[in-house]
Design a binder for these strands. Structure first.
Lengths: 216, 216
DNA sequence: GGCAAACACGAGTGATCACTCGCGTTTCAC
DNA sequence: GTGAAACGCGAGTGATCACTCGTGTTTGCC
């Protein structure tokens, strides 16, 4: 009744310093989560990594879970933006090898740049909220992959298409782990190329509706 | 100097009851680890799950890590036994699709029966000892896969062979996650079949030294 | 310059966890 | 049967963690 703004229960005004601290804390949290996992990471360790006192940390986050959630949401947002760039209609018209390049490369780049993303999304120890967001992203990605498969293999029944999309995505995740484990440089590039070869060999037969035997 | 036995510093005699308790505790630990992950699982929770007091638990295990290690070692031993049955010379003579059946099916069966195995081996939160054992198993498995690939594609250079083995194994892990996520029954069977299709399409070209075009 | 609010601190607090200890019970060799 | 040792218990202990609070500092607006 006494509020004229109904949608902002906490009209906390942040100064520029505050925004900087938040970014600093999230970066520190990413580093600590990445190294120890969510559960084994202490808020004091995060504060220490950010060269900040525990009290300061709790000025910006109500609890440990909120740190992970904010971090996860920012990463999710970044990733969704990347998807928007990737799954565009013009890419659908590309031949399969080019499409693989267009989709796989940005995904790998993102995960190489933000290794904490997999650490947060993959663990079964993460707070429920993150798991929900991750499920939503997963479902949305699967839908995109299904669209692509439907475009390349229009004759495939829906259940089969879903299965192929699931398997394609699971395979990509497996390959992604391998890519991240490889040292940067030519070895990583070779692993990425191998992953694309794998995906291509798996998916290519779907497009062979009336194609001749493959060239020797 | 006062010991006549130099190799057994703790000649603890176990009664049959004790062995039963150990098995009971390990089973409870498997259940709790599986549900919450290693770090978030408390020894009290494990004892409660086993309907035993915390004191009793510590009669058989010096600390929490030892529980995971013993559990991991037993699973590792079981899995190594399974490998011995799988990678036998006569299986090498099988055509690729049959070989895939012979290797993939037991692996999947083991992981379905012991879901805690993946939970213990995959997490980055596990104690160092488990990680070491897992790395050893991983390396040994990779070597086996390399052998198989070398047999099917003798002309493949060693670095390529290593890369293909890595990718094959990573793909299998990804598919395994998918299989475990699928509900038991026809859906799981279909996922398993799809995984085999994927592996077959990836590996088949390696064997095509002088093979004719595939039948339509 | 002055004031209110955002920022920063770090010792402190209650809860929880891994692990212990003292004592009673069961098992087994003799 | 008897004694020693394995078994079993659960309240207790010290450490650690997430989180708070009282106090002092910096910032932005008038």
């Amino acid at each position: 009744m006494s509020e004229d703004r109904s949608e902002e229960p906490k009209p906390r005004r942040r100064q520029a310093r505050g925004e900087r601290r938040i970014a600093q804390l999230l970066q520190a949290a990413a580093s600590v989560f990445c190294a120890n996992g969510y559960t084994a990471s202490s808020t004091n360790a995060i504060a220490r990594e950010a060269h900040v006192s525990p009290g300061t940390l709790y000025q910006y986050f109500p609890n440990k879970e909120a740190i992970a959630i904010e971090l996860g949401e920012r990463l999710l947002h970044e990733m969704r933006e990347a998807h928007g760039q990737v799954f565009v209609p013009e890419n659908l018209a590309l031949p399969l090898p080019r499409l693989l390049d267009a989709v796989v490369d940005p995904m790998i780049e993102f995960n190489c740049a933000n290794p904490v993303f997999l650490a947060l999304m993959h663990g079964s120890e993460v707070p429920g909220r993150i798991a929900e967001e991750h499920d939503a992203l997963h479902a949305s990605l699967l839908a995109r992959v299904q669209e692509v498969i439907a475009h390349y293999a229009p004759g495939l029944p829906a259940p089969d298409r879903a299965r192929v999309a699931d398997m394609t995505f699971a395979t990509f995740k497996g390959g992604l782990d391998l890519v991240l484990a490889a040292p940067e440089g030519p070895e990583r590039d070779a692993t990425i190329a191998e992953l694309k070869t794998l995906l291509l060999r798996y998916l290519a037969p779907l497009t062979e509706e009336a194609a001749p035997a493959p060239p020797r």
